[in-house]
Design a protein around this nucleic acid. Sequence first.
RNA 1: GCGGGCGUGGUGCAACUGGUGACACGCCGGCUUUAGGUGCCGGUGCUCGAAAGAGCUUGGGGGUUCGAAUCCCUCCGCCCGCACCA
Length: 824
Amino acid sequence: MERYDPRAIDSRWQGIWESEGTWEVPNPGEPGFDPSKPKAYVLEMLPYPSGEPHVGHLKNYSIGDAIAHFRRRNGYQVIHPMGYDAFGLPAENAAIKTGEHPRVATERSIAAFRREFHSWGISIDWTREIASCEPEYYRWTQWIFLKLFERGLAYRAEAPVQWCPVDQTVLANEQVIDGHCERCGALVEQRNLEQWFFRITDYADRLLADFDLLESWPENVITMQRNWIGRSEGARVTFSCEELGIDFPVFTTRPDTLFGATFFVLAPEHPELERLVAGTEHEADVKAYVENARRETPAERGSGDREKTGVPLGRTVTNPVNGEEIPMFVADYVLMEYGTGALMAVPAHDERDYAFARSFGLPIRRVIEGTDPDEAVDDDGLPYSGDGPMTASGRFDGMQNRAAYGEIVDWLASEERGEPAVNYRLRDWLLSRQRYWGCPIPIVYCEECGMLPVPEDQLPVELPDVEDYAPKGQSPLATATDWVNTECPGCGGAARRETDTMDTFVDSSWYFIRYLDPHNSEAAWDREAADYWLPADQYIGGIEHAILHLMYARFFTKALADMGELGVQEPFANLFTQGMITRDGHKMSKSRGNTVSPSDYVERYGADAARTYVCFTGPPAKGGDWVDAGVEGVHRFLSRLWRLGMDVAATGESAPVAEPSEEARDLLGKAHWAIDKVTRDIEDGFQLHTAIAAVMELVNAAYRHKDSLEGDPALRFAASTAASLIFPFAPHLGAEVYEALEGRRVWEEPWPQADESYLRSDTFPLVVQVNGKRRDQVEAPADADEADLVRLAHASEAVRRHIDGREVVKEIVVPGKLVNLVVR
RNA sequence: GCGGGCGUGGUGCAACUGGUGACACGCCGGCUUUAGGUGCCGGUGCUCGAAAGAGCUUGGGGGUUCGAAUCCCUCCGCCCGCACCA
């Protein structure tokens, strides 16, 4: 008999799906739209096209495709699109080396991705394919930018920014990892530059509150975003330097410790520093200290428990609660980016302030009584961060600190020296990049009219061709003088274009909306289509996007909803983050030489084995190590299913019998159990590996009975059920076997339903225990009552041996499961 | 330090509201073919035993229970994220 030939099967079905456009789905109002079906938007993170797809992509789209197929066959109208996040640095860096236009390398890579995705047989509606580097796409990225600009959510400001000296560009805070550039690993520097920002901080509270609107997101992703936003409640209190008449607002989470403030510290970057020390004996020391701090990397400065350093300023500020003059310092443990870049130091109740006070011999005044033996470093039990009654705090003495907290803030507010305040760690999103291969920012600058948005009817502002892609501290676009020099949309005079491009995270913050109406040349999307499909019911991707991409997309969705362009507040109702596949225990990388090319395996074993393997190798949420033998194991299983199907299809079938044999009933029971198991495993949290295991079990059982049940309808049922259940994971084989057995297309069949009558059985295995230890297993009638079960237990020879004359004091019966005999 | 997760056979890992290990890899034996691999069948937690069987097993210790991977206490170890955040 011929053998399972995955390559022939793959190309046959891929041809059918391609020519029939099987996975295309219409929008509401379009021909073929079925309003009776509920919708399901199954979305995987779009790939960044660089080189060829790797196993991470294989896993991502295999999982997504399984979900898409499962939903379709459960009666949903499923949209399952694909696109490319095509702007970005790798293509540009390659262009700098080779001189080849980044578009060329990008298009080559897109072609490779497209070809491989087709060879995997994933069920994509290819009519909705998009690429973010196409003018038809980025025209609308620019449109969104302008909408944000209109509402004051995009703004330009000079700011200290993170500058990567190698990539010659500004980075978002999120792209700086431990002081290094996320992409190239270079040490990041600080610079002051005019940059474009999105006002994501306006949405901080809603980004936090709306976690409640999500159906199911991994807890760790929510936690990571929550930490990143870093909301803390407290008060803003103003200290002032009377000598120079400068007010210094500070943020504190502990207004109850205000009376314990004994000194005051500014960050080295604080803008008022110069004024404070100009012309004084401290000027030189302060300047030297600031210089030194500036040279240090954020990583060095931020490193844990290093010695506290600082320099006195020779000035004082007045503590608003008691009028005390307290000395000022500059110290690098104060961060300009958090709060106001200045803080009141309360050494008795803050570890860092305590360390600083000890080093500089500054007074330490306790204002809350109590001790925490774990934290205290000195004999007085200080520093103390716990609760207790107030002391040395004027009229608040004796009050519990928690109660004093609110009263002190109220009092300061009435004196206009403070107010309740909320502070965030989150910064605004810096989106401008001094690079070539990105979406141009649609802004022009005119001597007369100033900064103006490009009018909507002039979009897209197309990316011009340039001679040299290498950045030289300004965007390569600046060298395209014909493009830069333009007409002012306001006065018609000479104007210059903005030459920065956008961060690629802007492109990917709305692509899931464009999929819904990808060819619309009148608008970014049709509102009806967006309202119908959004939010995405299932989003699938890597954990590495837990913060950046996922938070930016949430922000865009909210901003667009506020503008009346969208009807949802959250883009992704359910999120699944897949684990990373490693090789030999390590992350795959070209430099390590341990990469796995999916195409090799697709060539050798077919798409189904490769796809099923990545879903089977462990819980999909966890990572796993790629093992070649594992792919072979899956391949063996698939060929066994194929053989089973072909053998059964080749033999005739006897007429249905009134009373199936015991063997047939067993097999039918197994099939219904598998249906139930696979359905639950996919629905309840992506237990794809156990779902596949259940199908394997069914196939093994059917295979065992293949000869004895030849011609029995039960065998055919088991085989076609297995084909039907494996289809979401191994669609080519599933379709092939199902067609051979049933003569129909499996994807047009509803998902199989477990028949309860087959899940039950006439008998069940009764476990018999003696003192909680399993000693025997006997067949018990399903309808046996407790007394019958006890009788059966006692009848067991093995059990009698164990009791060995001792007295049975108690019989514990778990109906349908076991009998436990307690003996003494 | 803070937050999240985890610890079960040689390995990846199953186990519903407490009633012991699914599926697969690997390994061992057999069959077919045979240059080898593939393919098929059977076995496989550990220890003792020829066998029947017995004892021990879900990171360690303790507890609740007739019975614990599961519940409680405690200790140990690992992974991930954030971190001088006022």
